[in-house]
Design a protein around this nucleic acid. Sequence first.
DNA 1: AGGCTATATAGCCGATCGGTTATGCGCAAG
DNA 2: CTTGCGCATAACCGATCGGCTATATAGCCT
Lengths: 116, 116
Amino acid sequence: MQDRLDRTFAALADPTRRAILARLAHGEATVAELQKPFSISQPAISKHLKVLEGAGLIERGQDRQARPRRLRLAAVDETSAWLDQLRSLWTDSFDRLDTLLRSPGTEAPHTQDRKG
Amino acid sequence: MQDRLDRTFAALADPTRRAILARLAHGEATVAELQKPFSISQPAISKHLKVLEGAGLIERGQDRQARPRRLRLAAVDETSAWLDQLRSLWTDSFDRLDTLLRSPGTEAPHTQDRKG
DNA sequence: AGGCTATATAGCCGATCGGTTATGCGCAAG
DNA sequence: CTTGCGCATAACCGATCGGCTATATAGCCT
């Protein structure tokens, strides 16, 4: 349950893998297609894909001899859900109000102004 | 610019560090306080805090000889922003409609039904 | 000053990561 | 049925990670 989050965040921590996800957001793609933008070997790409799949961020399809990958938005959602929850903990806690009032204006209030 | 995202996601990939963030969401805390829930050494905690600070997820305060940490929600926001952008790429792309129609019902449509 | 408290740094260790090359394996087509 | 394409796996490598112990620094408090 927690292990999954570990793997999702870890998978997202690599720029190559994020680029792959961005590419897959436009639609499914084969390994060869995914490799094109990069100057690394095909096995390296396969490894990245394995990590992404292990994190549940992508899934493998089958089309003739190709195995196209597609994005699993569910995993993306679960990940943002954790971040949202963290924000909730923050906004629900008034303890830190004291902290903010005494702090040297390090940051704006930032109570709920996201997504605007 | 990208390096920052790398570090943020990497920082979030560790359960201890996520727990620390969750704790800090309730208000600032000293190193000793943050260590309490865990059975690892104080230097290990300091290392985790260094990673979190390097990712911009927390900042160091000063209160007498203590250096309390507090959450930097801005970094959390930037991270969810990337995920949101990924979702936008997805929803803006109709290419994958074809993919979905031909897929063996692996997943529900999932067009915009998040946060419900 | 000298000691206590709070935290940071250094150096070590085994494990994991991200890359490589070499090779295997399934499928399609001549 | 062999050749070639698409992809996966294995084995190896240096670098980074997450933990440890030992030690250093910094700021109270006698």
